[in-house]
């Protein structure tokens, strides 16, 4: 942050005799600036320049005329977006699914990390950790296939068990509530283990003396977890929460796309699948860009709001 203004302030050639404090500071910081440059270039080239493409949300984008040559359309695309009944459900679903994923998915990595932390046998802990990381590296195509096979009615293991218990199969994938449960559950199964890593790192930083002292004072395991472990990792939890807020408007494409089916489309059509269907398949680039922009703006507002709340508790990011 400090580097760029310093760099741009020197662009007019200053006379060498004049040695302003700015210039001296620049000299001191040259190694840092050099180290920072690739990062700056990366962000400008791959993050900021592509944002220019957002203008097509306000245009009638046409392949032939390109991003700049297409005609301006004003807010027409947004108007179209918000008058289409499908859009409203899509946005509602996106919000619902992502908030639920956060509420359900957020505590699991923390609980897992604390549980790992309490395991004393090193080999057991290591192998358990590896087992729980593993699903993270499977693609959603694989996990989706597994989930659908598991819950299908003719060949699924779950339904075979269910049939033995109740006498008939249950359409888990075609009921909105059970579909949502399966959706959230599969997300937790795949990502909780990997998400625990960051909390494990935070746990490693807690001073062991605190536990010893608590032990001497007669605190049990749960008291220790409550009064030492959790407060010790609170900053990380808050950080993850703020980062998570930025993603509230986005539901990852792969998972929903692999698991959704027409019967539950009332709750499973989300912004990312909408953009895929309308934009990439239907070539409606302007309207889907408008949708993407809407998603990003809401995300930005949420991040800022979350940070504002965190600031009250002296945990803010910036």
């Amino acid at each position: 942050m400090k580097a760029t203004p310093a760099a741009s302030s020197t662009s007019p050639p200053a006379t060498p005799a004049q040695s302003s404090p700015n210039r001296r500071r620049l000299k001191q910081n040259i190694p840092w600036l050099i180290m920072f440059a690739p990062v700056a270039v990366y962000f400008i080239l791959f993050k900021y320049v592509p944002m220019g493409g957002l203008v097509i949300a306000f245009k009638d984008y046409h392949f032939l005329h390109g991003v700049w040559g297409s005609e301006w359309a004003g807010l027409k695309n947004f108007q179209m977006l918000f008058t289409d009944p499908a859009t409203i459900t899509t946005i509602r679903n996106t919000l619902m699914i992502s908030v639920l994923s956060m509420v359900v998915g957020f505590p699991f990595p923390i609980v897992l990390a604390i549980m790992f932390n309490e395991v004393r046998k090193l080999w057991f802990r290591k192998s358990l950790q590896t087992l729980l990381y593993l699903p993270h590296f499977l693609s959603w195509v694989i996990v989706g296939g597994m989930v659908i096979t598991l819950f299908s009615q003719e060949t699924g293991a779950v339904n075979a068990l269910w049939e033995r218990l109740t006498g008939s199969t249950y359409p888990f994938l075609y009921n909105e509530a059970s579909w949502l449960t399966i959706f959230l559950g599969s997300g937790v199964w795949k990502e909780a283990g990997f998400g625990a890593i960051i909390y494990l790192a935070a746990l490693a930083n807690i001073d062991p003396h605190l536990y010893e002292a608590a032990n001497l004072d007669g605190a049990g395991k749960f008291k220790q977890i409550w009064h030492i472990t959790l407060p010790g990792i609170t900053p990380v939890i808050v950080l993850m929460l703020i980062l998570g807020m930025g993603r509230v408007m986005e539901v990852g494409f792969d998972q929903v796309y692999m698991l959704q089916n027409p019967v539950v489309s009332n709750i499973s059509e989300v912004i990312s699948t909408y953009i895929y269907r309308m934009g990439l398949q239907g070539a409606q680039f302007s309207i889907t860009t408008a949708m993407g922009m809407f998603e990003a703006v809401i995300g930005l507002i949420l991040v800022i709001a979350a940070n504002g709340v965190a600031r009250r508790f002296n945990q803010s990011l910036w």
Partner: peptide, 22 residues
């Protein structure tokens, strides 16, 4: 403010150059 100006300049510059290429 300077930072913002810098970034905008970069964006516009890059945009113009890609426009030229287009």
């Amino acid at each position: 403010a300077l930072l913002l100006v810098g970034i905008m300049a970069c964006v516009i510059f890059a945009a113009c150059s890609s426009n030229g290429q287009n």
